[in-house]
Design a binder for these strands. Structure first.
Length: 317
DNA sequence: CGATGTTGTGCGATTGTAAC
DNA sequence: GTTACAATCGCACAACATCG
């Protein structure tokens, strides 16, 4: 073992007679830190030069200087990694909190739906009237607080029926679009991940599910807006698109009936078919809104829309 | 309250390995 | 052979808990 001595500043320097363990003085560490800041990876020649130029380091062996720089680089790397992991941990903790909140909300909705189900089972006459209403596929993310669906007049594939669905889709979209933002967009066939968005959110000060969605896809709102504007990317998995029917709404807008075939997730599965209702409208402020709604079954127009599939607005940021 | 033991952390040194 | 890197060791020290 070595001997201990107290330095001028009160710090302890441990010098071992075999030279095994030495604590450098604060002055020496300060000088080394300065040198490290200028050049974290000095060559052997540069290290020897540093020892010659810096008297305070003159009693430190060149090998020790080399080791000090090595350890310094290593520990900086460790600190950065530790800092990064702490940041990841904070994000995951926040996301976990949001998921717990959403799970809680979904469970309440399940309870509500179970209650409604038992209620309608006890009232067959009402159930008949609502048999044509199917919002079961609507994402609870979009539906917000679920409530008893108001009854609508029967709709069909006539212009009036399509217009009715289109107007409703537009109203839903506008309720989700806040100023320069669309609260969320979901596109059938899209894979979740940073390169292809499954659920996106670009609301200002987005919270809850919207914030989680941003976190999940790891996209900045501006990037999300770019993707929204990049319409061809929406059809990346699209095999075929046909405009089945098109009509004018008379107010500068139009309604199109689209058939879309998407590539299957696996080569073994058949391609998936979608029917879309595209409603183009001009709002009071002059902005153009294109609102598309996925229709569940082509043959039954009556309220079988699944959810607002995707929307775009000219005033999207 | 002081002595003692435990635990966590920082840091210099060593070792094994890979790249050149 | 030299160098850099990662992993690890061993030591010192501070903070804290426990005990008499």
């Amino acid at each position: 073992m070595g001997v201990s001595s107290t330095c001028k500043d009160g710090s302890t320097k441990i010098a071992m007679d075999n030279g095994k363990y030495v604590r450098y003085t604060p002055e020496q560490v300060e000088a080394l830190e300065r040198l490290y800041h200028d050049c974290p990876k000095p060559t052997s020649m540069r290290r020897q030069q540093l020892i010659r130029e810096c008297p305070i380091l003159s009693h430190i062996e060149p090998k020790q200087i080399k080791v000090w720089f090595q350890n310094r680089r290593c520990r900086e790397k460790q600190r950065k990694e530790s800092s990064r992991l702490q940041g990841v941990n904070r994000k995951l903790t926040a996301m976990n909190k949001l998921l717990m909140e959403e799970n809680d909300r979904l469970q309440k909705q399940v309870s509500q739906l179970v209650y409604e189900n038992s209620y309608f089972r006890q009232q067959p006459q009402n159930a008949t009237n609502l048999a044509t209403t199917d919002t079961s596929c609507e994402s609870v993310v979009t539906s917000g607080q679920h409530h008893l669906t108001p009854q609508h007049p029967p709709r069909d594939a006539s212009p009036a029926g399509l217009l009715s669905i289109a107007e409703e889709s537009l109203a839903q979209f506008l309720s989700k679009a806040t100023g320069t933002a669309v609260e969320w967009v979901q596109m059938p066939g899209m894979k979740p991940g940073p390169d292809s968005i499954g659920i996106v959110a670009i609301s200002h000060g987005c919270a809850g599910v919207a914030a989680r969605a941003c976190g999940l896809v790891g996209l900045e709102p501006t990037r999300v807006a770019e993707i929204l504007k990049d319409r061809p990317s929406w059809f990346r998995d699209c095999r075929a698109v046909d405009v089945i029917n098109a009509m004018s709404t008379g107010n500068g807008g139009s309604i199109e009936l689209l058939y879309m075939q998407l590539y299957a997730p696996t080569t073994l599965a058949p391609a998936r078919d979608f029917w879309l209702l595209r409603y183009t409208s001009v709002l009071e402020d002059g902005s153009l809104v294109v609102c598309e709604r996925s229709l569940k079954q082509h043959s039954k127009w009556s309220e079988h829309a699944t959810h607002s599939a995707f929307c775009e607005s000219r005033n999207v940021a």
